[in-house]
């Protein structure tokens, strides 16, 4: 267990370092924007507002909030303090809603949609890829071209195709949103049923793309592994093929798990764009609103949340991986 603790601490350390770094980037990059963001924002907000003292008050509020008139270091610590208190400021485009409030309602939509979809897609994709590598022949010949084509489709493309075919043409699923427009979020059966109906299509669009990519990766890894020297050696010692296949797939699954951790960022990025196609009320849609409304606090907070989501998911996968791969403990022990 000592080896694993070392591994765990190592990964935890990495997690914290990346977190701090991501935090700094998130703070710095938007501040490179030329001009005074607060002035630009206030002038937009104040459109149609004739009360000059009102405009002045808003300006003062933002300037205080972001500390734009203070030195950059001080601004940074102000930002750290605010974020630590869950205070991301007010949303410009949905004033006077606080950003934290806007995000709180959208983050769960994204988490509940993307993580299950990515995990399901990963599992199915790996199973299919392994089968294709093992069975070869017809199964492989049908599955592979489809997988290659599907995985080359951008995530939003898959979303649009599913939407047009199943929602607009066949009318099996609703066209947009996370629940019916005529409903208010509540714990009624009607609402839950509506949520489920709206959930399926975005879910499948993410699952399908994930299947394509994973199946291809798994297949080539498995083919490599099936030709590995230890497979040949084990065969010549009289070990049954079924047992050897067991070795192979266990060994191939391990890098696929780390692969998932590494590609999680890209997958979530694609899925956020797919959310937009379905007007799903998650982070992707919030981000789109932020961008079209030039809502800088909202964008900054959304990207921060997405980064944290990816980092945490990554960390969890690495930790689980350490438990599964026997070599980790062995290698860390010495």
């Amino acid at each position: 267990m000592k080896g694993y603790r070392k591994y765990f601490l190592n990964k935890l350390g990495w997690f914290l370092v990346t977190f701090v770094f991501a935090f700094i980037l998130n703070f710095t990059l938007p501040r490179l924007m030329p001009g005074d963001p607060v002035a630009a924002i206030v002038s937009r907000l104040a459109q149609g507002m004739s009360n000059a003292t009102g405009v002045q008050a808003i300006y003062q509020q933002y300037a205080d909030l972001f500390g734009t008139n203070k030195p950059i270091i001080e601004q940074f610590f102000l930002y750290v303090r605010n974020v630590a208190q869950g205070n991301f400021g007010f949303s410009f485009s949905q004033y006077p809603r606080p950003v934290a409030d806007v995000l709180a309602s959208s983050i769960w939509w994204t988490v509940c949609l993307q993580f299950p979809a990515i995990i399901v897609g990963w599992l199915i994709g790996n199973t299919l890829g392994a089968l294709a590598a093992y069975l070869r022949g017809g199964f492989d010949k049908v599955l592979m071209p489809i997988s290659i084509f599907v995985s080359n489709l951008p995530q939003f493309g898959m979303a649009i195709i599913l939407l047009v075919v199943f929602s607009i043409t066949l009318k099996w699923f609703p066209v947009a949103g996370g629940y019916g427009f005529d409903l208010m979020p509540s714990f009624s059966w009607e609402f839950i049923w509506s949520v489920i109906k709206h959930y399926q299509l975005p879910f499948f669009s993410i699952v399908l793309i994930a299947i394509g990519g994973q199946a291809i990766g798994m297949r080539s890894m498995s083919i490599y592994e099936l030709n590995a020297d230890y497979v040949k050696y084990a065969r010549f010692l009289g070990i049954k093929d079924r047992k050897i296949i067991g070795y192979v797939f266990r060994n191939v699954m391990l890098p696929q798990i780390t692969g998932l951790a590494l590609s999680l960022g890209t997958m979530i990025g694609g899925a956020l764009v797919a959310e937009i196609v379905f007007s799903y009320p998650g982070l992707g849609y919030t981000l789109l609103n932020g961008i079209s409304g030039q809502d800088y606090p909202l964008i900054s907070a959304s990207t921060m949340i997405v980064t944290v989501m990816v980092l945490v998911a990554n960390f969890v996968i690495e930790i689980l991986y350490g438990l599964i791969d026997p070599r980790i403990k062995a290698a860390q022990a010495d």
Partner: peptide, 21 residues
């Protein structure tokens, strides 16, 4: 036969053992 009558030592013994066993 395999292993008991006739056995084999592979060319690249470096990778002849299953790495996770």
């Amino acid at each position: 036969v395999l292993g008991t009558e006739i056995a084999y030592i592979p060319q690249a013994a470096m990778n002849a053992l299953n790495p996770t066993q």
